[in-house]
């Protein structure tokens, strides 16, 4: 067999093999790898390259080494998922860098992290004041994660005691002018509905680049022609406005009308509408 053909065959076989092996090893992001995983991936890559280029003459020996370097990490991963001890041994443990607002200098030294680096890592997390930090931990991947003091945390609807609507993920129903059936069925909608919505918006299906339906059933359309201005769905705001107007009207009638009974009826209904507005506010305005 000529040399070139042999290298071609070896390369092809290893390409497929390594592709499968990497797939098998899971979805770890290269930047988030612990040192151990990094070493494993590197060794797999090097063995594959050396075998493909016939630096390792015997193909079988190359495969053998590759098998060891893929199967043992897989087995260890399996064990690590079941035992915390194995996991910590393999991937290292997280180190507490700041506790109760105080920097743990010993731990810092142990992790070979300088004060400079700690401050930089904090800044990456948008923390410029060490005083704002309650707790910080150095993960095994080298990331620093920060828990801010409770008065420095961003305000959430929870803090404000606001009621917000749970929103499920939007579904893409049109892509590149094609209907995505999966998105439609996930939403419980059909082609007829989509045709109607497109007609309402006054666009043809071919002109839509992306169409997404949010959890309340409103569709957002992005067209190929960016010069076309599409009115964004405003039905909710209009609905809320209509209710508000009706509520104001009823209050006015209650003031104007003569006769106790009619007055009470208007005032009572105005109050009911008011409560309805309060109730629907989180759903309609957001």
């Amino acid at each position: 067999m000529p040399e070139s053909l042999e290298i071609l065959l070896r390369s092809l076989a290893l390409f497929l093999l390594v592709f499968l092996v990497v797939r098998l090893m899971g979805k770890k992001h290269p930047a988030k790898m612990t040192p151990f995983t990094f070493v494993v991936y590197s060794v797999v890559a090097v063995i594959a390259a050396l075998t493909a280029l016939k630096v390792i003459e015997n193909f079988i020996l190359g495969l053998l080494a590759l098998a060891v370097w893929t199967l043992i990490p897989l087995a260890l991963d399996y064990l690590a998922a079941r035992s915390k001890v194995v996991h910590d041994l393999l991937h290292g443990k997280e180190t507490v860098l700041i506790k109760q607002g105080k920097i743990m200098e010993d731990n810092l030294k142990q992790a070979r992290l300088t004060a400079e680096e700690l401050l930089r890592d904090l800044r990456v997390k948008d923390v410029f004041n060490v005083a704002d930090v309650e707790f910080a931990v150095l993960e095994a991947t080298g990331d620093v994660n920060v828990l801010l003091k409770s008065d420095k945390k961003p305000i959430t609807p929870h803090h404000m005691e606001w009621k917000v609507l749970p929103r499920t993920e939007p579904q893409t129903v049109i892509m590149d002018g094609n209907i995505i059936n999966e998105g439609l069925t996930n939403m419980g909608l059909n082609h007829r509905w989509l045709e109607e919505e497109l007609e309402k918006a006054g666009v043809a299906l071919e002109n839509v680049f992306v169409g997404q339906v949010d959890s309340s059933g409103e569709m957002y359309l992005d067209l190929f022609d960016d010069a076309v201005q599409l009115p964004q769905p405003k039905v909710r705001e209009l609905l809320y406005g209509g209710l508000e107007k009706a509520q104001a009207d009823l209050t006015k009638y209650a003031l104007e009308v003569e006769g106790e009974e009619a007055k009470n009826m208007y005032a009572g209904n105005a109050e009911k509408l008011n409560q309805l507005l309060q109730k629907l506010r989180p759903f309609l305005l957001r």
């Binding site: 609507l165 749970p166 499920t168 939403m187 419980g188 959890s215 309340s216 059933g217 629907l280 759903f283």
Partner: peptide, 12 residues
């Protein structure tokens, strides 16, 4: 009829 979340459906 259209709302996906139980809570919204109920409120409407």
């Amino acid at each position: 009829n259209q709302a996906q979340e139980e809570e919204a459906k109920k409120a409407y």
